[in-house]
Design a binder for these strands. Structure first.
Lengths: 231, 231
DNA sequence: ACCTGAACACCGTTCAAGT
DNA sequence: ACCTGAACACCGTTCAAGT
């Protein structure tokens, strides 16, 4: 925070009082528009009422800005998790919050799926997951491993959903109609299972899939803890 | 396949006998170079010894080319799965093969994580997973749901790994050193779990995480099948 | 000390012109 | 029928010049 030592001599122009925070907030506003509005340096300049390249005074490059923006959205996720939940509840709340925030800011969710922000809120998320798996009964290397399983799987899944959300409507429609079109027209002899289940395949809802995936992760932790208790 | 009706009057110039197949193969060669070589239309033109824009004669746009390339890599995955495995073995082989191929062609693996190719080899993968979950004892909507869980989770995870592989060495080193640097230096009072497990967190291997994730998916299917058999 | 704006080295894609 | 190459509308980023 000790970046802008004195705010004397401000407001020469309306929107162009540039600070890292202002840039992050403008980024979030653009990101929230999803596929409507590309998240580019030039667009960010417009949003800030400043020259696009002014951003480089406050962030080394676009990647570093994105990392900071991502950490901010992680804060939103953390704030959405209620107090007093047991370990399963906390993991579920984290999962739901992550998905919601990733879909709210799809560019961020999609770009950060394979990254580590190494910033404050990421530490808080790590601490939360570790606390959950330890409460479940895991410790040491087992706790570390299952933390990574939950974190990586969740991030990957949520990032994938965000990336999908980022497509323009046309490309998305083509992908979605596959289940009700292409998959209904396959050769029944070559693809008997697809033929048999084509209706059911088209009816699976995204929420069910996410719920099943998160459930699988929680069960895996539970099962491992039981096995270790037994030994 | 009935795209090039007659191959008369060929070889006017050496490398510029353009066919969809030749373009896909050139794409795979570039993709296999990972972060060394960007997969751009211009680079593809060089690889083919043709003008970059000649590609648009054979594919509507880069996305359609990528979809075709992706389906080809799915073929490689399928070919790597041995015959005669039980359902768990088939899912494990599919998972391992997908990861291997995604890391072999990281641009493809990363770009396709949130896509559907709607092409022949994708049908074969769907058929394979459906066969596995049905052999496990699931049917109807349950089989469809668990197919989606396996497919989406695997694709997301594998795509994430591929995207990570695509970073230049520097960015990757920064991310990796986080566990042995930043995470060792956190405030022990604010982050007791991280502090306690910092050594173990740095030691978790990628293979373990993938194994745990795939295991969690398989267990979830098994557990659901047991529950249904009981009812 | 910070912002501006021209400029650079890239992208994917279109389209008139060539053979 | 297919390929070429100039051109267009974008990108992220650098750097000298302004205030």
């Amino acid at each position: 925070m000790p970046k802008s030592p004195a705010n004397t001599a401000r407001s020469k122009r309306a929107g162009s009082q540039l600070t890292p925070d202002a840039i992050i907030e403008a980024s979030l506003r653009i990101a929230a528009r999803g596929s409507e509005d590309a998240f580019t340096v030039r667009r960010l300049g417009e949003e800030l009422g400043a020259d696009p390249t002014a951003i480089y005074r406050h962030f080394r490059d676009k990647d570093e800005l994105l990392l900071s923006v991502a950490d901010r959205t992680l804060g939103e996720v953390l704030d959405s998790i209620p107090e007093g939940l047991d370990w399963k509840g906390r993991i579920r709340a984290l999962a739901d919050g992550s998905l919601a925030v990733a879909l709210k800011y799809p560019v961020v969710g999609s770009a950060m799926a394979s990254r580590t922000t190494r910033r404050p809120n990421e530490f808080r998320v790590v601490e939360l997951i570790l606390g959950a798996v330890m409460e479940a009964g895991l410790e040491g290397a087992e706790a570390a491993l299952h933390y990574r399983m939950v974190a990586d799987s969740l991030l990957a899944y949520v990032g994938q959903q965000a990336a999908y959300f980022l497509f323009d409507a046309e490309a998305r429609a083509a992908d979605e109609s596959a289940w009700t079109r292409e998959y209904r027209l396959v050769d029944p002899r070559a693809f008997p299972n697809i033929t048999r289940l084509s209706t059911e395949l088209a009816e699976v809802a995204d929420e069910q899939i996410f719920e099943a995936t998160v459930g699988a992760l929680i069960s895996a932790i539970e099962k491992r803890a039981e096995t270790l208790r037994g030994a």
